[in-house]
């Protein structure tokens, strides 16, 4: 019995089986293959240009650390600047470990990282927000609030730090999961919006790019293990509330049975994005915070008001009063 899978390039012991190619790769040739695809994504789709100042949205997880590492690696030969922007949502027992891993890598590769917090931007942590959401029976899910607040925080921080691009660590699996979620919610605008590059509809929105768009999540993990990029295994405690949770497992089961299925779904998403009408481009400025929005009041301010009114209601109740005047803003989709 052979016992050892061999790299199809050099014949050495393989570390990774690339199921959609039906080929094995050793650590050296896997790293080369992985980095080449990310570099080609940047070049072929012109995600970055000479002189760009790229903010990388970093959470401290494997995807964002890999994005930061590779953007730093390519920055000199491709002549652009890189720095990191991290958001501390205030999730006890989770984010502090991820931020520690981020600071360690940033020091090692010589990249500045700026941290913004939900508390400074919205006046509360995600843990506090979730306590308020729980009181209302989770009619709005934690991931909805976190996603809206994070996008707001990252865009604002990137813009204020002079970024010309905002790179995120979204990988192939993320894209396919979000596509499936948008299908389930019949959210056509969401399908059109979620591409490799997000075209800015306002000069106050920093264009977003996704260097790992074509890379399966499993390959990102293999890359970090082979390269020694340390990321602690701690899961967000609120993931169990997310629709994404069952969808990702279902998609992985399908991928195990039908290698390449995720790529075919991604390809079909692109066909659909081209066939669907583009979302309305007119943007206005939020009447409360002045950030760009497609509604008079932005989604972040709407959710903040919804959460704070619940907390105010609880405080009133604690003083013997009634939870009167609590806002019941109907959450719009997304």
């Amino acid at each position: 019995m052979g016992g050892t899978a061999r790299c199809f390039v050099c014949g050495r012991r393989a570390s990774v089986y690339v199921s959609y190619l039906g080929e094995y790769l050793c650590p050296e040739h896997f790293v080369e293959y992985f980095e080449r695809r990310v570099r080609e994504t940047l070049v072929w789709f012109r995600l970055v240009e000479r002189g760009d100042r790229v903010a990388v949205a970093v959470s401290g997880g494997k995807d964002s650390l890999t994005t930061l590492y590779l953007m730093r690696k390519f920055s000199e030969e491709m002549d652009f600047e890189v720095f990191g922007v991290a958001v501390d949502e205030g999730i006890a027992g989770y984010r502090e470990y991820k931020l520690e891993a981020l600071r360690s890598l940033a020091r090692e590769i010589g990249v500045d990282v700026h941290v913004v917090t939900f508390r400074e931007l919205f006046g509360l942590t995600l843990d506090e927000a979730v306590a308020a959401l729980r009181e209302r029976g989770f009619e709005v899910k934690p991931c909805t609030v976190c996603g809206v607040f994070r996008r707001y925080a990252l865009n604002r921080a990137a813009r204020e730090l002079g970024a010309t691009k905002l790179a995120t660590g979204h990988n192939l699996d993320d894209e396919v999961q979000v596509f499936a979620m948008n299908l389930i919610k019949a959210h056509a605008d969401g399908i059109v919006r979620e591409g490799l590059v997000t075209e800015p509809a306002s000069e106050r929105l920093v264009p977003r790019i996704k260097p790992l768009y074509f890379i399966p999540e499993k390959e990102v993990l293999a890359y970090t293990l082979i390269k020694g990029i340390h990321t602690p295994f701690v899961e967000c405690p609120y993931i169990v509330y997310a629709l994404r949770h069952p969808i990702r497992h279902w998609l992985n089961e399908v991928e195990d049975e039908e290698p390449g299925a995720k790529y075919r779904v991604l390809a079909f998403k692109e066909v659909l994005r081209n066939a669907l009408p583009p979302p309305p481009k007119e943007m206005m400025l939020c009447r409360i915070c002045g950030e760009p929005t497609s509604h008079p009041v932005c989604r972040a301010c709407e959710l903040k008001s919804y959460i704070l009114s619940t907390r105010a209601g609880r405080d009133d109740a604690g003083r013997g009063g009634r939870a009167a005047g609590v806002a019941r803003l109907p959450p719009h989709p997304g």
Binding site: A14, V16, Y17, Y24, P27, K218, I226
Partner: peptide
């Protein structure tokens, strides 16, 4: 597709005996 394995400290492909 949800697991990467290391055997005796080395990352290996799934078909490794």
């Amino acid at each position: 597709s949800e697991v990467v394995a290391a055997v005796n400290g080395e990352v290996v492909a799934e078909d490794e005996v």
